[in-house]
Structure formats: structure tokens, C-alpha cells
């Protein structure tokens, strides 16, 4: 499926994706107005690092998604055509089973609304806010094959 990949060698840890994600998931969709919203909009991506390797952690939209298996309310499901792991906030009861199950730590709590939140691949726009925000091109949208090709090209250079 088409999804978001992070090229660890290109991520400089600017956290631009985090801000862009929070803003995209605000009502206003603008930075300064988003900051005034209560509750504050929640980001679904987190930049973290280990041993100088920096990674923008996203929902991987796993083919065999442990969060869907764990969800007891039917809030999480697989969208057949796109392969997206989708979360229906109206069905979510905030049991955090998905958080327990996700090996990537890509699902977080929205404490105010008492529901889980995760990457929804920006349903309100055609592109992806985090990818658009990435100044170094570390975030990449495409299939696994396309991502591999990009990485290969890089090593040839």
C-alpha cells in the first residue's frame, strides 16, 4: 500500500512533522489559531531518536495489524481498498487495548476526549501534512517498492 516512510539518514529531528500533524488535526488548520483551541489538537506522529538515528514514528498501517486484533469495540479496522488502518472515534471507548498492542507506540491517548488517536493519513487533504512539512525529504509517501528504489538510488550516488 501507499504509506509514509521515514528515511532515518535524512531526518534531522526538526519536529516539523509533529507541528504540521497537530495543525492538520486542528479545527482551524492554522498554527496560531490551532494553539488557541481547547483541547489542544493532538499530533499523531512523534520524532524520536536513538544513538543519533532520528526517526519520525508513524502508524505503519500494518498489513496484519495488532491494534485491530486488540480492539474490543470495533473502532479499529482495515479499509480494504486502501489498506489503511482506520480508527472510528465514535466507536472508541478508550480502553487503550490498541496502545497495549501497537509495537511502534504509534497510538496515543487523547485524554480530554478519552479516545485513542492515530495517524489517519490526512483525510482532509490530498497530500500528507507531515510529508509536506518535512524540509529534508526524509518523509516519503509511496509503496514499499518505491521507497526501496529511492534508498537504492541514494546509495549509488
Amino acid at each position: 500500500m501507499k504509506k509514509i516512510f521515514c528515511d532515518i539518514t535524512k531526518c534531522v529531528g526538526c519536529k516539523g512533522c509533529e507541528i504540521a500533524c497537530a495543525v492538520e488535526h486542528s479545527k482551524a488548520k492554522g498554527l496560531s489559531a490551532a494553539l488557541k483551541e481547547r483541547p489542544l489538537p493532538k499530533r499523531r506522529v512523534k520524532v524520536s531518536s536513538s544513538d543519533k538515528k532520528i526517526l519520525s514514528i508513524h502508524c505503519q498501517h500494518c498489513a496484519d495489524a495488532p491494534c485491530i486484533l486488540a480492539c474490543m469495540s470495533g473502532a479499529l479496522s482495515k479499509e480494504k481498498e486502501s489498506g489503511k488502518t482506520v480508527h472510528d472515534k465514535d466507536r472508541c471507548v478508550g480502553c487503550w487495548m490498541c496502545i497495549m498492542a501497537c509495537p511502534f507506540g504509534a497510538i496515543v491517548r487523547n485524554i480530554e476526549d478519552h479516545i485513542a488517536v492515530k495517524c489517519d493519513l490526512c483525510p482532509d487533504r490530498e497530500d500528507f501534512a507531515c510529508v509536506r512539512a518535512c524540509p529534508t525529504g526524509a518523509l516519503f509517501v509511496g509503496t514499499e517498492e518505491e521507497f526501496k528504489k529511492i534508498l537504492k538510488k541514494k546509495t549509488h550516488v
Binding site: 519536529k15 516539523g16 498554527l31
Partner: peptide, 10 residues
């Protein structure tokens, strides 16, 4: 350049 850095803007 867009989107520009939110940290910088703020």
C-alpha cells in the same frame, strides 16, 4: 519553503 517551521514562527 512551505510549510515553514512552526517553532520558528512561534
Amino acid at each position: 519553503m512551505e510549510p515553514q517551521c512552526g517553532f520558528g514562527q512561534l
